[in-house]
Every structure is written in C-alpha cells, then in structure tokens.
C-alpha cells in the first residue's frame, strides 16, 4: 500500500503521541466542530494554523498527510459542485437556466476546507493514538453510561477489534486482488463495466477469510478466559498528567479565542 490511510497508526514518541487519549479525542472533536460554528476568516486562519502546528508536532511526514486527502477527493468534488450550483447570489455564468454564483464558489471552497480539516484532524488522532489507546479512551469517556446498564466495555472491545482488523483487511484485499488479477480478472484496470463485477471474486474470499478470522479470534479469546459479562481490569491505566492538563487548557483557550473573535465580529 503506497499511501498512508486514515485510521492507520504510526508509533512514535512525540508529545502528541504521549497525550492521554481522552484529551486527544476531546480536542479532535472541538477542532472538527469549530469550523462549523465559527465561519469568519480570522478564526479559521487561526484554526488552520493550529492544525498545521499539530501536524508538524506529530512528526508525520506532511506529504503523507496531504496524500491521505485523496480518499475524500470525490466527496469533495461532489460537495463543491453541489454548492456551486445551489447557492443563490450574483450569477457569474448561466448555462441552461442553472447559474454559478460568486457566493456558490465561496461556499464550495468553504465546504472543501471543512472536509480537509475533518480528514486531517481525524487522521492525526489515529496516527498518534494506537487502536488500543483509542478504545480505552472511548471506554473511559463512556464509563458513566455503564452505570445505566449499557454494555460500554463490550462496545470498547468491539471497537478495539474492529480498529485492529482494518489494516489486516486492507492487506487481505490487496492480496486477493493480486491473486485474481494473476488469473486474468479485470479489477484495477480495464473498462468500468468490467471492473465492477470484477470485485465479486475479491469480496467472496474476503468474507470467507473474515469469518475464519473471527472464529479463530473468538476461540483464542475464550481460551484465554474472556467472558463478556466479567469485570475486566486494564494493564495500563489512564492518568492525566500535567502535560494533559496543559494541552487541555491550550485547546480550550483556542476555542475561547475563536468564540471571542466571532462574538466581536458579530
């Protein structure tokens, strides 16, 4: 696989890697919500600058990060075109009763910017946080719901397993695609109308192997005494350190500054 996919974890020792997963998840959520509540240019410049600073801090090669945006290229184009034609305002160009407006151009650009920010922030979260930590964080955040009788621990376990198997499934797809291409299947090349049915010989073996893996995993977990109803303890416990506190304050300050700017700009 030549590109770093969103959801992949890159082990490292940067301050961002060492941060408590709960802090990182909270901060990510804030960074993803802010561009929607704060539409003004200055606050978004500040926000974008902050995200770029985080990206540099995470030590993930920036080019690799930029390339992850490839996964949303089609969504981005669709959203841009949609906004371009549906926003009322000063017409720039009219073709057959549908007009492209200046405001539409701006709104489309804003959509793309928000989408990019969403992908970059969530990628940064998974690059710097291992799946196990992430699930642990989710479990800790949802802990209060466990008292209401909701299966929070089981949910966290399901999440851990799902995250753990994302790269495995990608590898598996890659392997099966190659095996079927070696048998002359048109999957990554050839005309589109031949490519789509070409995926059947990929997905059938993929599901077969996913079920086999699931069965093996279930057996292995039971052999090691896993019972879903049992209270389990963690090998590593989450502790908030001074760094986590500082990071939380920083991100809250950013939020406050942006809201203040928005308020002043009316």
């Amino acid at each position: 696989m030549s590109l770093l996919l969103p959801g992949m974890h890159v082990a490292g020792g940067t301050p961002l890697h060492r941060l408590d997963p709960r802090v990182k998840m909270g901060a990510s959520l804030l960074l993803m919500v802010l561009p929607f509540v704060a539409p003004s240019l200055p606050s978004n410049l500040l926000l974008a600058g902050f995200v770029v600073a985080l990206a540099i801090l995470s030590a993930v090669p920036l080019m690799a990060l930029v390339r992850t945006l490839r996964v949303v290229v089609w969504t981005g184009i669709f959203m841009f075109v949609f906004r371009l034609f549906t926003t009322p305002g000063t017409p720039l160009l009219t073709v057959g009763g549908i007009s492209v407006t200046l405001q539409g151009l701006g709104a489309g650009a804003v959509q793309i910017y928000r989408l990019c920010l969403l992908v970059v922030v969530s990628s940064l979260l998974t690059y710097t946080t291992s799946p196990a930590q992430l699930a642990h964080g989710v479990e800790a955040v949802l802990e209060p719901l466990a008292r209401l009788g909701l299966p929070v621990r089981e949910f966290a376990m399901v999440l851990t397993i799902a995250l753990r198997f994302v790269p495995t499934l990608f590898e598996e797809i890659e392997k099966i695609v190659k095996a079927q291409e070696a048998r002359g299947a048109l999957i990554r090349t050839g005309p589109l109308w031949k490519r789509v049915p070409g995926w059947v010989p990929v997905f059938v073996p993929l599901f077969v192997s996913a079920f086999r893996r699931a069965e093996d995993l279930a057996t292995a977990m039971e052999a090691r005494g896993f019972r879903s109803a049992h209270q389990r303890t963690h090998l590593y416990r989450l502790h908030l350190t001074r760094h986590d506190l500082a990071a939380s304050l920083l991100i809250l300050a950013l939020g406050a500054v942006i809201l203040f700017v928005e308020w002043r700009m009316g």
Binding site: I176, A182, P201, V208
Partner: peptide
Amino acid sequence: KVGMAFQYPEHQIF
C-alpha cells in the same frame, strides 16, 4: 502467461 500461485492459494476460491 505467468501463472502465479500465492501462499495458501485456496484463500482465493470464490
């Protein structure tokens, strides 16, 4: 013209 049998080729059966 190059036949390729991967490791565990039975995993490609569909």
